[in-house]
Design a protein around this nucleic acid. Sequence first.
DNA 1: CTGTAATCGAGACGGTACGTCGTGTCTTGGT
DNA 2: ACCAAGACACGACGTACCGTCTCGATTACAG
Lengths: 179, 179, 179, 179
Amino acid sequence: MLTAARELVSEVGYAKLTIEAIAARAGVGKQTIYRWWPSKGAVVFDSILALSEGERGIELPDTGDLEADLKTVLRATAAEFADAEFEAPIRALQTEIINDPDLAAIYREKMEAPMREAKKQRLRSAQRAGQLDADADLDLVLDFLYAPLTQRWLERSRPLDDAFADALVEATLRAFRPA
Amino acid sequence: MLTAARELVSEVGYAKLTIEAIAARAGVGKQTIYRWWPSKGAVVFDSILALSEGERGIELPDTGDLEADLKTVLRATAAEFADAEFEAPIRALQTEIINDPDLAAIYREKMEAPMREAKKQRLRSAQRAGQLDADADLDLVLDFLYAPLTQRWLERSRPLDDAFADALVEATLRAFRPA
Amino acid sequence: MLTAARELVSEVGYAKLTIEAIAARAGVGKQTIYRWWPSKGAVVFDSILALSEGERGIELPDTGDLEADLKTVLRATAAEFADAEFEAPIRALQTEIINDPDLAAIYREKMEAPMREAKKQRLRSAQRAGQLDADADLDLVLDFLYAPLTQRWLERSRPLDDAFADALVEATLRAFRPA
Amino acid sequence: MLTAARELVSEVGYAKLTIEAIAARAGVGKQTIYRWWPSKGAVVFDSILALSEGERGIELPDTGDLEADLKTVLRATAAEFADAEFEAPIRALQTEIINDPDLAAIYREKMEAPMREAKKQRLRSAQRAGQLDADADLDLVLDFLYAPLTQRWLERSRPLDDAFADALVEATLRAFRPA
DNA sequence: CTGTAATCGAGACGGTACGTCGTGTCTTGGT
DNA sequence: ACCAAGACACGACGTACCGTCTCGATTACAG
């Protein structure tokens, strides 16, 4: 069922997705879907969440060079955003998150929190290595790194190229360099 | 018609908004709506856009103290995000922008561009006053100031208080202080 | 549903009858009507047909006096045509029959044929009693008796009184008296 | 406009005929149609009536042999009913007449009355020639001749062949032969 | 093995809204 | 001054899905 949901989001888009279509594709009665999820959003949400369950134990590279590592990671993130296959589901996910506080909370807990923690680990390592201000608010650092990237992708305002990723890292590190 | 659309978005939310309801509220036939807009999204989009048409000639305060001015502006922006009346329409707008590239383009041109230019004016003034790196990429500066704010609001991940606004300004200015 | 259709034909007339009104009156979704009938005409047709399903086993009086019996029957038919309650549905039925060959075929099979057969029985009895030409084409006899009556009613060209009914019977019997 | 109406009745049938289509076909504004006729039925009615205005001064053949003359006329009428081109408009006309008493009255006055009078002329001639009962109710005679024909055509219950036309004439003349 | 439950697919149901079409009225611009 | 063109408020169309509700038929378990 989750697979059917994911496929259909990619094929027809979130707005035109119907529960009947999911049921038909999955070879399942509608009632069975309603038994497990309260809404279309919840199904789609879970279908994407199920995907990310697979990628356990994210860990960021730690070569000792924070700037290089962050550029690697941000360039990869930007490239991922450009992947057509993931575009539709992630935009669907964002749509849900914006409009449904409950799903937003689950999203933060199940998907964002682990990622954020992994990233913070890398930043703490940098703090210990004296490459980052020891007093820096790490949540703020992560926002500086990722929020502009995400926003430009969502609004399609500008291409997400390597230069942009690099500029983000450089400016962020200037803002939070050790005292 | 645009007024009716705006009111209804606030009252029932974007997802539950129907064209029939807009037509009824506006005392208009459905066909008349379809004659002018291709979709529900377009109507809502225009209804919000029409709002901002009113606020002509935005200009940021320029007391000579960039940090103080930016804090004032960002605190105001954060407060605006907290205003219940604007919340529903703006979330609706974001939903549209995320999912419809065409509307996103119009949004950038009609709403974002003028705001962005006004902000850049203030930043250029600061560059002339030696309060900001003369070589700074002003688009990037604006992303640093606004993207984290917007993202936290959209995802409801953390309260948008004055401290957060101040921290954004301070970190951004550290990143782009004059050489 | 059929009851609702019948009532509404009587109330507002066939031309102003809407499927939505039938659905509303019957407390039923429109789709349910469309699931069972292809058109408004078919619903109305069935609603009238269902009525006549009730009156099983029609039999004409047979007192031994053909002329008297036929006058009784034709006067009754004329009176029935004058009944306001049946007028609207029967006119609706005629409208359908005229314009839809398929419904016309069903009408002949389901409604007209049994009536016609019952009438023929009475005529055959009269033939055996020497009151009617043994070689008479009974379909033609029935047309002579009923077609003028029906036509005058449809076109509202003249009142359907007893004298007219009697005249029809007398002339018909003159035309088909035994050799 | 009347021409456009008549063509469209033949092409799409009365039920699917729209005033907008008539206006478009006639190269005329809708308002102009509404200025002259109160309803779709009235337009169609007039369009057919206009046709018959052409055929001035109908007169039935009078060879001196009533039976032969009537058979000629009824066979011709039956053939006319079979003409595909006239079928749609005449059925449309019947539909109007059945459901609208006002149009029915106009129809009787403008179209039926002249025809009926012409036919009566021929019958009176026959009465003078001793071929028809001098006391016969001529309206009734005409009903006997035409009503069965019309009814079978409307209900499509049986083919309208020459044999049927002949049988009608023969039976009618038996019913009304001179005393 | 067999009878009884629980579960599930299928899809009918009462509804709501869709986007389209036609109505009859009103307005506009060109002749 | 007229009239084609067509916008308008309105209402019904026939369709798509909604979320709820029976239906069998197919399992899985108990006796």
